[in-house]
């Protein structure tokens, strides 16, 4: 208690973000590396239009299947499209899908998890059995069914992944809510006449935010990976959109021996980004969860 009281004023001077970054970079080097990869990925995705030297579907028949060079750092594909530009636009697509999908998933998780965890009783039992039933379907089966009904496309993928991960992830939020619910300050809030909605939004939600943030971060990586898998199977975003998964399965697979850079460029990007996000998420969990603090190094 005294330690907290003593560090509090100095932490305030530096600001919580600076203090957080210090702890991340000094205490979690792998997480810091993940954060840098994540940041680079974000910048690439957000500014793909500015950064990419060519358009993602700019065909150049003369420069087909060129190996990496100064003009084309990642080489070109069988239609002469610049791979660097395609990978950058692919990052844009992944950012959109990753963030929208993860955001939807997180919102769904919060709504189900908070209501189920806080209200408890029969409501909780019924909701959790439905979640069980939902989780017992293999992810890919649900995905394939929905995409074959709705047809492939970015928004279909986002909505499907959002609900898929949202319903599964609600269990994690529920767990956090149950542990928060038993705190005296929740009773204190009730004792000043706060209705359930006020207690949930104002008193419970801020206290499960660390869990929410970690869940969201992890979900970004998971959604990106699953989208790549879907596109690889031809169920994701239809060409010519430069989805990393689509690039792997299209020209990447066909010309794997002739022009390995076609598969390597999106493959390495995908691996690095998902790895980075997971490492960052892991570090976030350690730093934000007070129970883990000082535990694992």
């Amino acid at each position: 208690m005294t330690a907290i009281a003593q560090t509090a004023p100095s932490r305030r001077e530096r600001g919580p973000i600076v203090s957080f970054l210090r702890r991340l970079f000094l205490g979690k080097p792998l997480g810091a590396a993940g954060a840098i990869i994540f940041a680079v990925f974000l910048v690439c995705g957000l500014f793909a239009d500015v950064l990419a030297p060519y358009g993602y579907n700019q065909v150049d028949p003369i420069n087909r299947l060129k190996p990496p060079s100064l003009a084309f750092p990642f080489g070109t594909d069988n239609l002469g499209r610049d791979m660097l530009s395609r990978v950058l636009y692919g990052a844009q697509l992944s950012v959109i899908i990753g963030f929208c999908g993860a955001a939807l998933a997180t919102v769904v998780s919060i709504v189900i998890g908070i209501l189920s965890g806080y209200l408890g009783g029969k409501f909780d039992v019924v909701v959790q059995r439905l979640v069980d039933a939902w989780m017992s379907f293999p992810d890919l089966v649900i995905l394939i069914v929905v995409v074959s009904v709705l047809g492939p496309g970015m928004w279909q993928v986002i909505v499907v992944l959002g609900f898929l991960y949202g319903i599964g992830g609600s269990r994690i939020i529920r767990g956090a809510v149950i542990s928060v619910r038993e705190n005296t300050y929740v009773y204190a809030a009730q004792s000043i006449g706060a209705a359930t909605a006020r207690v949930l939004i104002f008193h419970v939600l801020p206290n499960v935010m660390p869990t929410v943030i970690v869940l969201f971060t992890m979900r970004v990586g998971a959604v990106i990976l699953v989208e790549a898998g879907l596109s690889f199977l031809g169920l994701g975003i239809p060409p010519p959109a430069p989805s990393w998964g689509g690039m792997l399965t299209g020209s990447g697979r066909t010309f794997m021996y002739l022009a390995p850079w076609l598969a390597l460029a999106p493959g390495i990007c995908l691996t690095l980004v998902v790895y980075g996000i997971n490492m960052f998420g892991d570090a976030l969990r350690d730093l934000l969860d007070p129970r883990m603090r000082g535990g694992r190094r």
Partner: peptide
């Protein structure tokens, strides 16, 4: 000690 919400 525990009746105030630590997040607010």
């Amino acid at each position: 000690m525990s009746s105030l919400n630590p997040a607010l």
